[in-house]
Design a protein around this nucleic acid. Sequence first.
RNA 1: GGGCGAUUAGCUCAGUGGGAGAGCAUCUCGUUUACACCGAGAGGGUCGGGGGUUCGAACCCCUCAUCGCCCACCA
Length: 901
Amino acid sequence: GSAMLDKTYRPASVETRQYEAWERAGCFAADPASAKRPYTIMMPPPNVTGSLHMGHALTFTLQDILIRFERMRGRDALWQPGTDHAGIATEIVVASRLAERQIDKRTLGREAFIERVWEWKAESGGTITRQLRRLGASADWARERFTMDEGLSAAVRRVFVTLHREGLIYRDKRLVNWDPVMHTVISDLEVESRETQGKLWHIRYPLEGDAGRFIVVATTRPETMLGDTGVAVHPDDARYTALVGKKVRLPLVGRLIPIVADEYADPAMGSGAVKITPAHDFNDFEVGRRHGLEVLNIFDRDAHMNDAVPEKYRGLERFAARRAVLADLEAEGLIEKTEDHVLMVPHHDRSGEIIEPWLTDQWFCNAAELAKPAIAAVESGQTRFVPRQWENTFFEWMRNIQPWCISRQLWWGHQIPAWYGPDGKVFVAESEAEASREAAAHYGGEVALSRDEDVLDTWFSSALWPFSTLGWPEETPELKRYYPGDVLVTGFDIIFFWVARMMMQGLHFMKDQEGRGEVPFRTVYIHALVRDERGQKMSKSRGNIIDPLDLIDRYGCDALRFTLAALASPGRDIKLAESRVESSRNFATKLWNAARYAEISGCSLKPGFDPRTCHLTVNRWIAGATRECAAAVTGALEAFRFDEAANHLYHFLWGSFCDWYLEFTKPILAGDDAAAGAETRATTAWVLAQTLHLLHPLMPFLTEEVWQQLAGAQVATPGATPGAIEAGMLIVGHWPDLPPELHDPAAAAEMEALIADLSAIRAVRAELNIPPGTRIAAELRDADPAAAARVGKYADYFLRLARVDVSEGAAGGGAVQVVGAGATFVLHVGTIIDLSREKTRIAKEIERFDADLARFAQKLANPAFLAKAKAEVIEEQREREADARRGRERLKAAYDRIAAG
RNA sequence: GGGCGAUUAGCUCAGUGGGAGAGCAUCUCGUUUACACCGAGAGGGUCGGGGGUUCGAACCCCUCAUCGCCCACCA
């Protein structure tokens, strides 16, 4: 063997070394030429300038678990990594870094600014991928992509041009969500409504030609009255029927505007009359359209008043304008009343700025059309969501989807491939040369074209990720082999932003041999968000951020990974408590020491060893338990139950293997029976090896380290890359597929009964404070044959693990009665304990049995139960009642004996 | 306003019709050579309230309460 393992596992020294070894040996690389079945996960590309947070740690841990699991199951695993240029987010970061140095983005100019962004990417772009490596992510880094790579940019242009030709991308003048500080439009999804304490002002609008009479409208945004072009009342509102068709004179402005009847007006709200500002409110826009009202834009792109308003308000920014308007209305006695009012104010989720509905020309994508096949694909199960409930969320949004505004007035991103001729005619093409040719053909000669200055929404390129990363529009072997992906793992917060759009684009552009659209992934696994231990969202402002790298430093990567997996129950947020990570670290140490013990005890893996050939019950038992654990872990991972996989492994390794099996077998290893010793050593090593395999996806570093120190070099793994074979790496090992015959029911029953006996005796000893070192003579009473045989067979276990000598005869003094599995143990404790205390203890236990018996009796005496319950349920209840009765009888006998002295 | 989810031990959470569980924390005992990041034990819960279905409910249905999230045009 190898050098003896250190006393404790030191993650830091192991992690870097193992990771580099894996990468060097090519273990992460997918192999398009392989005969294996492919397995693909597209990594959701993190922001290129980002750094690892707990949400990343969770999502990438889960993905890595799946990738390692399937790789070990013999699949050609591709985990496609990359980063996203994250248009707005990155532009904001770079602009504010420049602002710190008193440099204004706009003064700098477009080209220079973009250069600065590329510099910033070069500087910080490697951070996130370095951190992913520290997390153990086994992604195929040689295939790393960036959404603004030339290849991916070409894919973006091809998609844009194609959809435009198909009429699914078009230019339109509509109200959009405008950020007046960043000077860009954003999509509906990027608007975040925030509850705000505001006021509701009731304003009198004088009726034309009817001096002294008013119609009162209520508004939360009085400054927009300068752009009012109508007042709406409900057609059935009797109060206003006579006024419909009449006009009001707009205060401060003097324009005459009509009163129209529209169902939008809610008679129950305010006065029942509502001012209509079509250019600055989405609802009003629709009302205006229905009644042919003028659309009067009163804001410029900074949300300052423009020349459409009376001179005194021009140039005022929106809140200054509000104050001025209110003051003037007040002065004219036109404010009827003011109420406090809570309203939802739209903000840009990135910049935090208050959004202004504003009328502009933008590029839109006909999402409703693209959504149809995506909806059908989920309905038919071609793509399924796990947990299932998220399909409803997906459907709800997709069935009510609005046109997707895809242009942004930013600089960092894919510039829209559209060029304008002198007369404004647009030429959409994949390159400027192509646009020029088209223009020349159109105009009958060379003309100067100007390119559309806008860039595309970041999510436009992310939507293509499942195929653009594989080389599309080229027909690469990768594209053919790795599309569609198997699983997409992500949080619910980007189902709309990303998942839905990948579905739309994938189905539209990727076709199978029959020409039908192909989904980008078969399964969407949606995980929860990570919160702090009190359930609060982690945020800088709350100061409750837990840095995953900090946890990795202090507890090891495997401890963090195991914790996240164990907490990843479906449909629930993850509240991360550090104590949980500590407990996982302890688990890692436990495994480390079990392996160390195996090494010290000479338990080395025997190639070709088959545990079915074991003779000793204890070995047959643990081999069966290993197979049960393997089956449970495999099933759990197949079902994305990372939590169950973690828990099964925890209990098997710590409980069954360490607490019982290793303790049971110590005397065998120390004993004279060479055959028994050899069998047990081989079994111990075998169980450990299976466990290392099963645990590897969750704790890759520790398991790899232990594997190589204990067994790795001796066991070649067919099918692995040459470097990995040579190194005997666990990462490319074979996932345990253990035969069901390993489970030996008789051996399991015997060992479980033994464990029950020992536990019962230990509990009583502890309860009666019998010193642990005190050996006690014991004899059996009322034993059934199986129990008698078992106790005889395992006398040395009773001695060592429960400190009772079952072979010694009776001695004098007080006796303690312990009910085990099928027998009573009479412990001759001499004068160690107080008999009255023992009587009390037994009486308490009898009470417990009585309570159980009463329940069983009631149930079994119930004719309805006997008539309607399933036969096996009744039988089970009968057996349990019989067990309880036997237990009680033994205790009662014991009690009587004590009472009799 | 609509929708979804949660409510089980002090804390964090498993448990989809038939014996209420785990980890951590607490308490007791113990350093017997893998491990004190350990071992052996113990205490602790009318499973949010109410109603219903059922022979039987933590689990299914209804209802209420509280908390969280998502969507939405309430001026």
